[in-house]
Nucleic acid binder design. Structure first.
Ligand SMILES: [Zn+2]
Ligand SMILES: [Zn+2]
Ligand SMILES: [Zn+2]
Ligand SMILES: [Zn+2]
Lengths: 133, 133
DNA sequence: TATAATCCCTCTAGTGACTAGAGCTTCAAG
DNA sequence: CTTGAAGCTCTAGTCACTAGAGGGATTATA
């Protein structure tokens, strides 16, 4: 049996987060000692590990709930594919952002340059942007 | 003079968002009609336009507040450079995520394949991941 | 057995950047 | 003058936690 601090440490979670997961029903209610403290078995540890790994891969808690609820096959593949599409969308949007920002920052030479800073001006001027955002 | 609906429409903002910006002090308090409705001049419209453009470029509201407060030069360049670094960091993290997700989704043939779905299993197995996350 | 250090408990509230809704008032056009 | 659109304030909800207050439990050592 593990204390909440132990499963938190083993999965790289903060203690209040573990309680939060229990509160929203992602983790089952833990057993308690006579004094009211939570104690966990290996199954709970593994479940928390799964949750944290899926979080690290960018899944939202509702997706994770769905993944954990799956008995047979069915939805897991679709959820993962959707997540992959989401990540790729975000990458594309970030790439457009990055190119505008790089242009804006590059529009003046920086603190030590000769002229005044053009950054503020460039930030206000969407007409100079190439992509939509 | 513009109504709140007009400056919202012109800047691609929702009306409650404009009121929210006023509430947190990003927009100055608008003039009011005798009946208490907000009226805006061109300066307010431009300021809102700047805010929305900076938001679209990923700046947080506190950064935007700092940008708007700048009288002379100084900080604008540094804020923009930091934002650019942030965006590049996020791109790198997303790229690592994408490669893990692509591997996981690719680990089974999909709904129509022959074997059972490996996605759920792969999601739980961080040891198979190449990058840290 | 006493005490101290470390952990754990519940509960509330705050984060960022809005968004939704209830219930009401004002404005502008016809 | 009536009507309908748009405006008003206020509260609460979103997501995934995180911080803090004020207390209780457990464990190791003396
Ligand atoms: Zn500059
Ligand atoms: Zn732009
Ligand atoms: Zn599959
Ligand atoms: Zn992993």
């Amino acid at each position: 049996m593990f204390t909440i601090g132990q499963i938190a440490a083993r999965t790289g979670t903060k203690v209040p987060t573990v309680r939060y997961y229990e509160g929203i029903g992602l983790l089952p209610e833990a057993e308690r000692t006579a004094g009211g403290q939570r104690r966990y078995d290996r199954a709970a540890l593994d479940r928390l590990g799964f949750i944290r790994h899926a979080r690290a891969l960018g899944f939202g808690l509702e997706d994770i709930r769905a993944l954990l609820d799956i008995e047979g096959h069915g939805d897991a593949h679709a959820i993962a594919e959707r997540q992959l599409r989401d990540v790729r969308d975000r990458m594309a949007r970030l790439a457009r952002l990055e190119s505008e920002l790089a242009r804006i920052v590059g529009s003046c030479a920086g603190g030590g340059g000769t002229g005044p800073c053009r950054v503020l001006e460039a930030l206000g001027d969407h007409d100079a942007c190439a992509a939509d955002h």
